[in-house]
Write a protein that binds this DNA or RNA. Structure first.
Lengths: 193, 193
DNA sequence: CTTATCTTGGAACGACTGGTCCAAGATAAG
DNA sequence: CTTATCTTGGACCAGTCGTTCCAAGATAAG
């Protein structure tokens, strides 16, 4: 009997994600979202709830659709150090070229936006996922005797994670891919034997 | 003949800096600033101009009063690697304890706030200042034969700078000092011979 | 004191904020 | 078809945004 939605929820959320990603939550008004999605406020509020919920959903979508695939690929890549190098190479490409160049990472950006408990949980999920993937790749690398001895793998994973955040952040100010790459290579170069 | 200001401009700016630091530009209203400084809108606007100018001034103050002293101390410390370790130890203390715990770094935070050209210039100044200080300390360390051979000093300085940004960012989500420290130590440990 | 100049408090501005509401429209089961 | 239920567009809400303005107050030179 009831009517059915006249739009694709997932598609709309993708548009919202882009807005928050590029300009941040505070700088993105409901009006902007209405304009970009073509939806009315009613549809927006009945489907997603308020702005905060919308942001949380976008954040979750980003983690699921963008971050997690990167993490999974890294964790599934059994080459060891080259897997990590490849991850960063992909990251640099994403951050410095293409349609999202200079946007940074939605989750990294979220750190500066007075996070609610719910959003903070997503940030921690993101951090845990990335550093776990790094740790796994490092273990593989150790198995292949690619690492110099005596390395604390968990600590190194944490360091690489912090480095990735640094790359994400700096890419937003237009830092060149070449410059960022030197920093990444310095880190990776110091891990080998 | 003229009247004279009834308040201390520098003092007021310090209050404004704290507001922007903790909550960000977008989330801080002029009302909040009026409340926190005790000044009227007239005084605010006649002394500093609009919100954007106020933000830029706060950013500049942060760079001059907070960041630069840290950079200078690092650059003046001629111990080499211990100087760098000391810098990070101080950074961790600032970011994770005391009255500014969990606030991150105003300049790092600024990366996510749709920077104007003027603010972006401050960001670049900050980045250049920090990586130059790191590069100098690394040169000293090389002179003392503390570094493992074959290190690209500029690249390593860039890496340490990105790492510092990572620390700043993560500290905002309540990351523990101990966890952040492991990441830092992994980076520093990989530089020695 | 007077007077010229600047500062200050506070009212007011239009634009916009996130959010609500409801009549009109769409849908599909009966 | 009717009818019950949900969705939709858009008007509308009170509140806040950054900013402007001006009369009243403060200041110090003459």
């Amino acid at each position: 009997m009831p009517d059915v939605k006249h739009f694709d929820t997932a598609e709309a959320l993708a548009v919202v994600e882009r807005l928050f990603w590029r300009r941040g939550v505070a700088a993105t008004g409901i009006q902007d979202i209405v304009g970009a999605t073509g939806l009315s406020r009613s549809s927006l509020y009945s489907s997603f709830g308020g702005k905060e919920d919308l942001y949380l959903a976008a954040l979750q979508r980003y983690l699921d659709q963008r971050s997690r695939p990167m993490f999974d690929r890294l964790a599934a890549d059994d080459r060891g150090l080259p897997a990590i190098a490849d991850f960063f190479e992909r990251l640099l490409r994403l951050r410095c070229s293409g349609e999202h160049a200079g946007w940074g990472c939605l989750v990294s950006n979220a750190h500066t936006e007075e996070p609610s408990d719910a959003t903070r949980a997503v940030l921690d999920q993101h951090h845990a996922g990335l550093s776990a993937a790094f740790a796994h790749a490092l273990e593989v690398a150790r198995g292949k005797e690619q690492l110099r001895p005596g390395l604390d793998l968990d600590a190194t994973a944490e360091m690489l994670t912090l480095l990735a955040y640094g790359v994400n952040l700096r890419s937003r100010s237009g830092a060149s891919r070449a410059t960022l790459r030197t920093g990444v290579q310095a880190a990776l170069g110091s891990l080998g034997r």
